[in-house]
């Protein structure tokens, strides 16, 4: 079956991104397709490429990036929710008169809520992970 996920919870303040990651790995193991993961609300914080995890902790971001490659899955941050929380690509930052710092983690894209709606129309199942 075709799946998409909506992740609303922040990576450190909730278990949403971690739970969604394990679910995604199990999806791929069961031969499902995971088309897109849409990060909304505080969930967009996962796509901040400047986050540093402690050496003795797993990198949640790194595991998501690996999953996206394995599943050919799009990782999309809601652009409005991301901007409000200061997560911008270098181009977006410049466009808003900020220093051109690339905040967006590799493998993530910024897009509007329309891509969530599209995903919901395209897939057999859309599963939400709340914060």
């Amino acid at each position: 079956m075709k799946y998409a996920l909506l992740v609303n919870g922040a990576p450190l303040d909730s278990q949403a991104a971690r739970s969604a990651l394990y679910f995604s790995q199990a999806l791929l193991a069961r031969e499902h397709q995971l088309l897109r993961v849409f990060f909304y609300g505080a969930g967009v914080q996962l796509g901040n490429g400047l986050q540093i995890s402690a050496q003795d902790e797993n990198s949640l971001l790194g595991e998501w990036q690996a999953l996206a490659l394995a599943g050919n899955t799009e990782l999309v941050l809601c652009i409005a929710a991301a901007q409000r929380r200061g997560i911008l690509s270098a181009t977006e930052a410049q466009r808003h008169g900020k220093p051109p710092v690339e905040m967006l983690a590799t493998g993530f894209t910024l897009a509007g809520l329309g891509t969530l709606v599209d995903a919901a129309l395209d897939v057999d199942r859309l599963i939400t992970f709340q914060g």
Binding site: Y40, G41, A42, A80, A81, R84, G112, L113, V117, D118
Partner: peptide, 16 residues
């Protein structure tokens, strides 16, 4: 932000 972001998502779905 739940109230705002919930409504924005609903409006987006309607706009599409």
């Amino acid at each position: 932000q739940h109230a705002r972001e919930g409504l924005e998502a609903a409006l987006a779905a309607a706009a599409f």
